[in-house]
């Protein structure tokens, strides 16, 4: 399974699924991280974590542990 964490900075990809059922995955989905949406990995913070992605015209920051729940497919 390819997750968001494994994508190089600057790459674009598509969300396949958000795994796990908890408040975090729900929040991610509410923020628009749902299967089918495309995004771009923007950067990682100074200590390598959190990550910033751009989707639906806005920037979203999340930790690596949270990004690990997002299954993706490179474009």
């Amino acid at each position: 399974m390819q997750t968001l964490t494994k994508l190089p900075i600057g790459s674009r990809a598509k969300v396949i699924a958000v795994h796990g059922n908890n408040a975090i995955t729900k929040r991610l989905m509410e923020m628009g991280v749902v299967p089918g949406v495309t995004f771009r990995v923007v950067k990682s913070a100074p200590f390598g974590d959190p990550l910033e992605i751009k989707l639906r015209g806005y920037s979203l920051a999340m930790r690596i542990s949270e990004a690990d729940a997002i299954e993706v497919e490179s474009e």
Partner: peptide, 11 residues
């Protein structure tokens, strides 16, 4: 557990 960090970076 460590608190989640899902946050918008507004323009």
């Amino acid at each position: 557990p460590p608190p989640p960090f899902v946050m918008e970076l507004p323009p």
